[in-house]
Write a protein that binds this DNA or RNA. Sequence first.
DNA 1: CGTACGTTTGATCTTTCTCAATAATGGTGG
DNA 2: CCACCATTATTGAGAAAGATCAAACGTACG
Lengths: 217, 217
Amino acid sequence: MLALPYKLRWLEAQSYTLREGDKPDRCAILVSGYAFRHKLTGDGNRQILSLHIPGDALDFQNMFLNESDHNVQMLTRGQVAEVPRGPLEELVLNYPAVGRAILIHTLVEASIFREWVVNIGRRDARSRIAHLLCEFAYRLSTHDLTPSGVYELPITQEQLADATGLTAVHVNRVLKSLQAEGLIDRNRRIVSFPNWQALRDVADFNPRYLHAPELAN
Amino acid sequence: MLALPYKLRWLEAQSYTLREGDKPDRCAILVSGYAFRHKLTGDGNRQILSLHIPGDALDFQNMFLNESDHNVQMLTRGQVAEVPRGPLEELVLNYPAVGRAILIHTLVEASIFREWVVNIGRRDARSRIAHLLCEFAYRLSTHDLTPSGVYELPITQEQLADATGLTAVHVNRVLKSLQAEGLIDRNRRIVSFPNWQALRDVADFNPRYLHAPELAN
DNA sequence: CGTACGTTTGATCTTTCTCAATAATGGTGG
DNA sequence: CCACCATTATTGAGAAAGATCAAACGTACG
């Protein structure tokens, strides 16, 4: 996989790696910084579909399809490795071990989408937000991206609202109440979790859907 | 693909083809009838994740993972073809054309999950329900499963509620109001759409996310 | 130092939920 | 064919979560 041609590139916060309707001709792998997927409704509301951390393949979801069905945008400034579509496709299809790894990556991402459906469809605001925080922290920690248990949450309250199907005002209030209860500790965008187990309980968070062991190979 | 060993089997409504936590050892392809995926929250609420029509692979989402993260259940009585895991994996990994088809199928299913996130997260009850009806009708029609423009919707209002993140009571009211406006026409579980374009508008339905042309190959 | 963006707060309004009861419907055994 | 039962659908009244509107407050950054 490392033998593929690629181009490292810095991207500013808010810049797009892919827009809905585009025909993808390359796949960006996130190297540093954070990114997110989102989609807009007809009346202009935004729904954030996933958050991405270094190591994630940003455009793979659309790579084998003819046109992208959503947008991928940088959350912070960061670096991506862009791999052209042709060689990547060839590698994926002709090397079973690679094909298997990519398929698993794709299936795990689908599993995360399913959990988001559950989160937004069937949990109240408090659990929803707690769940998103748990997921983010858990993913960072299984990738050894957080030495400390202190997380930089590179996301505005408005983006958090768009990720959870709420409004920014309500997110603000819920965040404050989680803090008042000692479930989270915020200082600007820096968050820590004084009582991880209690937060997990509030969030109804069960990491099974992240399939961490399968991804470890 | 047709050379794979498989076993045809009838399943009753409500029977499971896969449960959360199971280790999948086979993949069921739906031959007749309808099925759905769902997940339960910690306090027992159900969220339906997708509806399936004949031709869909029911267990593929978990096939390459070690344990299933959700349940798959029959909506109606119907028939499935069960393919054992080993031969299917081998075929998928060693035949690029098959691998490609499976990958595309998987990516399209992920795209549908994303649209459900948008639907539940950012549309009101009326649009949500209309959207689900549009999706179902559109998928049936692109598979030539509905000669007539009249659909049997094999789903209770409670299931519809669990699919849209609403309550059964509210679904009932919305359905009645859609009918009063002439956007749908119901007689028991039989539905037709007297004004498809108007329903699409209400639903904010854009079939791009279904990637019908890519699936046609 | 001013401007733009993000956060916080209050007051009020709406959508949707909850609880509870009643009516249809479909299927079953006699 | 009919009576009975379990589901499902429908309706009403009241409650609640979250949305909306509007304003003030911070903070980073050019």
